[in-house]
Computed example of a mutant assay.
Amino acid sequence: MEFTYLGRTGLRVSRLCLGTMNFGPHTEEADAHRIMDVAHEQGINFFDTANVYGFGENKGRTEEIIGSWFAQGEGRRERTVLATKLYGDMGAWPNEGKLSALNIRRAVDASLKRLRTDYIDLYQMHHIDRATPWEEIWQAMEVLVAQGKIIYVGSSNFAGWHLAQAQEAAKARGFLGLASEQSLYNLLERSVELEVVPAAEHYGIGLIPWSPLHGGVLGGVLRKEREGVRRASGRAVETLGVKREQIAQYEDLAAELGHEPGDIALAWLLTRPAVTAPIVGPRTLEQLHAAVRALGVTLDQKTLDRLDEIFPGRRPAPEDYAW
């Protein structure tokens, strides 16, 4: 396994991050435990979750599954860089969501209880809260760091100017600020290249792409349709409706290179500026092994140029749309 630093910090994490969103809704607890054990065996030390995972009436269930895995001991917690998130409403009453100082205090304690640990390595804001000032957010996070409940702070789904706001407010307080940003980023969705990626590079924020296969569309969906293995559903259907020709070219390129399409998509992300580790969210052990396989794929410049032809990217703003 390859390791890198999380942004400008001294924290070393694996080049793949294990996403756990499927644990509970789609993957039973025993199977989830096995996936996490095998992830460690493969050298993956970076795990991501969120307080709302489990969803609906089962919000918090995913954190509980991770907590029961940690409770087995044998160094499971110590070998894991644990990232979780807050923002989504965990109840129907006011102040059970978003980023008020009150909810930050309550949410971290609830996550710690479910996760059966006394600290969180990376505590992430799942979305921007436009109603709460940065002074309030950073003061609350500083308290958690001082209490030893969290070590680093991250964001998710922030715009580039949100990253700038956050970092400048943290700098004024003498606080480290954001260590990472989770964004939707893959060959099909490259909007973050406009402003999020440049901001992350400037401030030394590690970029953690989510949905690296765009809901499975970049994982060989057309071939699987032809073979009768899997039919596109959900967001994939809409994407295929407008991107079928590009996807076909992409799958043909993967075949020429002798690699699985999903391996190409992950390997491409690992070449991108500021990217620390794409999040892979396996439902099964087979999907985990497939993700790890991508680390052995090297893309030469000719292949990278061809991928840009198939899926045109974005230049940093404003040059992307102005002189």
Rank of each mutant, 00 (worst) to 15 (best):
M1R: 13
T4Q: 04
T4N: 08
G10H: 14
L18I: 12
E28C: 07
A39R: 03
G43D: 00
F46T: 06
Y53F: 11
G56L: 00
T62P: 00
I66V: 03
G73F: 12
E74C: 13
R76M: 00
V81I: 12
T84G: 09
D89I: 07
W93S: 14
S100K: 02
A101M: 05
R105Q: 10
D109Q: 15
D109N: 14
A110Y: 03
R114D: 06
R114G: 03
R116H: 14
T117M: 06
L122R: 10
Q124E: 09
Q124M: 07
Q124F: 05
T132H: 05
T132N: 04
I137T: 02
M141Q: 06
L144R: 15
V145I: 12
K149A: 03
I151R: 15
V153P: 06
G160R: 06
A164S: 06
A169Q: 04
F175E: 11
S180R: 07
Y185G: 03
R190A: 02
V196T: 08
V196F: 11
P198N: 10
A199V: 12
E201Y: 09
Y203V: 01
L218H: 05
A232S: 04
V237W: 00
E238D: 14
T239D: 10
Q249A: 12
G258I: 15
E260L: 13
G262T: 02
D263E: 15
T271N: 12
R272K: 15
T276K: 04
G281T: 07
Q287V: 14
A291G: 08
A294G: 09
T298K: 13
K302V: 14
D308K: 08
I310H: 05
I310T: 09
P316Q: 03
E319F: 13
D320F: 01
